Computed example of a mutant assay.
Amino acid sequence: MFDGLVELLLALPEHNVALDGGNRDSQNDVFALIRYGDQTRAATIEGKVSEPFGPPVGEWFAQSSQQKRDRMRQLCGLLCLDEVPPSHIRYQLMHRDEAAMIVHSFSPTRMWFEEFASFARLLGAEAERDQSSTVTLKSGQRLRLGWATGNEDFLAC
């Protein structure tokens, strides 16, 4: 997925990240600190088989309480979006805002890749399976997005 050798420095499973609004933190399957080349980066990894990336933003935001408005404002700010994203974008993808956001999919039918690709396009990136793409947000922060296909043999366990 990245050019050259990638070294895992730290991995924290089920890592929570506090966000404004709402009743819960954002939970990442794995928070990782990785090194590739001369760069050290933080990454969140979302493991998937069949489950979706949460409800679409339009559904999640339909009954928008003040807490949801606060959370959406913070998420849009982190991702340098000027407005609430289109209603079809999946909410769970909105709160993955580290230097790298990687989906590790074990789905034999590649479920939910199109939703991930739609989110990447929202940020100005093109998503391809087993490739990473980098987008520079309006803030100047670089965000690397990636979809990694897991070995289906692990589903047989």
Rank of each mutant, 00 (worst) to 15 (best):
E83Y: 12
L123K: 03
S26W: 02
P55G: 15
Q92I: 04
S133V: 15
A127F: 03
C157K: 09
D70K: 14
Q67T: 14
L155P: 09
H104M: 12
H15K: 09
L137H: 03
M111I: 05
L123E: 01
W112A: 01
R144K: 07
P86K: 03
E51D: 06
G37F: 04
I89D: 00
E126Y: 08
E126S: 14
E128S: 13
A117L: 01
V30C: 12
P86L: 02
S64K: 14
G140P: 04
P86T: 02
A148C: 06
V6Y: 01
A43T: 12
R90A: 01
A156P: 13
A120E: 01
P86A: 02
A100H: 02
S133H: 09
Q27H: 10
G47I: 08
Q92S: 07
L78K: 11
G47A: 11
E152K: 10
R71N: 00
V84K: 05
S118H: 09
G22M: 02
G140A: 04
D38S: 15
G47R: 12
M72D: 00
F154Y: 07
G58P: 01
A99Q: 08
Q74G: 11
N151P: 10
L79F: 05
L10G: 06
H88A: 12
T44L: 06
L145G: 00
A43Q: 07
L123F: 03
L9E: 03
A32K: 10
D38H: 12
P52A: 06
L75A: 03
M72T: 00
R71K: 05
M94K: 04
E46L: 03
G58W: 01
K48S: 00
G124P: 04
A11F: 05
S107I: 07
E14V: 06
S139C: 04
Y36L: 14
D38G: 11
L75I: 07
N23V: 11
Y36W: 09
R71L: 00
A125D: 00
T44R: 14
D130N: 15
Y36Q: 07
E51Y: 12
A62N: 06
T109V: 13
R24D: 09
Q141N: 15
Q63T: 15
L33K: 13
D29A: 00
A62G: 06
A32Q: 06
P108Y: 05
Y36P: 12
E14A: 08
P56W: 02
R129D: 06
F119N: 01
R73H: 09
S26A: 07
G140Q: 04
A120F: 02
A42Y: 14
P108D: 02
A127N: 04
V57R: 02
E83F: 15
N23R: 09
N23D: 07
A117H: 00
E128R: 10
T136M: 08
K138E: 08
L10A: 08
D97P: 15
A117N: 01
D82E: 03
G37C: 05
P108L: 05
L122H: 05
S26F: 03
Q66Y: 15
P86N: 02
P86E: 02
Q27V: 10
H88C: 15
V135T: 05
H15V: 15
G150C: 08
Q131F: 14
F154S: 07
A120L: 04
